[in-house]
Simulated assay, not measured.
Amino acid sequence: MQSAITQVKFKAGLPLEIEIISIADTVAKHRDTITIPHRAEFYHIFWVQKGIAEYLIDFEPVKVKGPSFLFVNKDRVQAIDTRSRHDGKLLLFTDNFFGKTAEDAMYLHSTILFNDLLDIPVISVASSPSLQVIFNAIEAELTKDNDVYHYQLLHNLLHNLLLLAERERRKQGFKEIAKGPDLDYTILFRDLLAAHFKTLKSVSGYASRMNISEKRLTNATSKTMGKSPKTIIDERVMLEAKRLLTHTHLSIKEIGYDLGFEEPTNFIKYFRKHTEKTPIEFRAACLHR
């Protein structure tokens, strides 16, 4: 295990923070990094062209049968199972590339491809050749010089790829959450939770920051996700606890302190309440799978 979950930064030295690489080449060159759980600071669009790919994304096994696209948001902990025989291409890009305007940043922040509250998007492209055409057009443009048109063309092509993928996702059984105040409050709560879950664990604290009542927040998350705010808070804390227990060799005390528990016994009680195992028992079970 590592002392911390590996943080992967975008490749330095490129004229723009977007690139397309071969999945097979990436596995061959970076096997030591991508086969262990890591957290990337950029967005992934996997185009699995043949075979069946197996990925682990935040403890959720995801199987992708080619030809399909898989969309993975930045900062999720992921790993590739190299035993799965597959190949294809991988498009990587950053907020800095796509989100130069407030409108573009908001789009990335809300698109169902990277912000699905209920699932990890996998889209079959066998019946959608236009997605493949645009992906290939991005790859072709990346081979050209960085002239005055280069950025805008790449940006527009990527935006069109995402929009077409959203359309296709909705055709393939996406469970739409009705737009409105409930969804808006849920997204705002999710964003606050991502930033403060280590230090703020009370529903009242989040409701106060959102200037709404606890009851209103509970109604919002119950309608959109079928869960109470307290359940969502606990799930986020437990996800990070499991990440650190499984993928680092930090001590139980260090992990508890990192997650905002001043006393190790409080963290142990909290963890056991939600898993029926102590942190040590959970870590041991993971190591002996």
Rank of each mutant, 00 (worst) to 15 (best):
A4T: 14
I5E: 05
I18N: 01
I23V: 14
T26W: 11
T35V: 09
I36W: 11
Y43R: 02
I45N: 07
K50H: 10
G51K: 00
I52S: 15
Y55P: 03
Y55H: 09
G66C: 11
P67Q: 04
P67I: 05
N73S: 12
Q78D: 06
I80F: 15
S84L: 10
H86K: 03
D87V: 00
G88F: 09
L92Q: 09
L92I: 10
F93P: 04
G99M: 07
E103V: 13
A105Y: 12
F114S: 03
L118A: 07
P121E: 01
V122E: 10
S124V: 05
V125H: 00
A126T: 15
S127D: 15
S128P: 10
L131S: 08
Q132K: 14
I134S: 01
A140I: 10
K144I: 03
H150R: 12
H155G: 05
L164E: 15
E168P: 09
E168V: 15
R169M: 13
G173S: 08
L192E: 13
L192M: 14
A195M: 15
F197S: 09
G205W: 02
A207L: 10
R209F: 06
N219W: 08
T221Q: 07
K223T: 01
K223D: 02
T224E: 05
P229H: 01
V237C: 12
M238K: 00
L239T: 01
K242N: 01
L244G: 06
L245T: 02
T246L: 11
I252D: 11
E263G: 00
K269S: 14
R272E: 14
H274K: 13
I280A: 15
F282E: 05
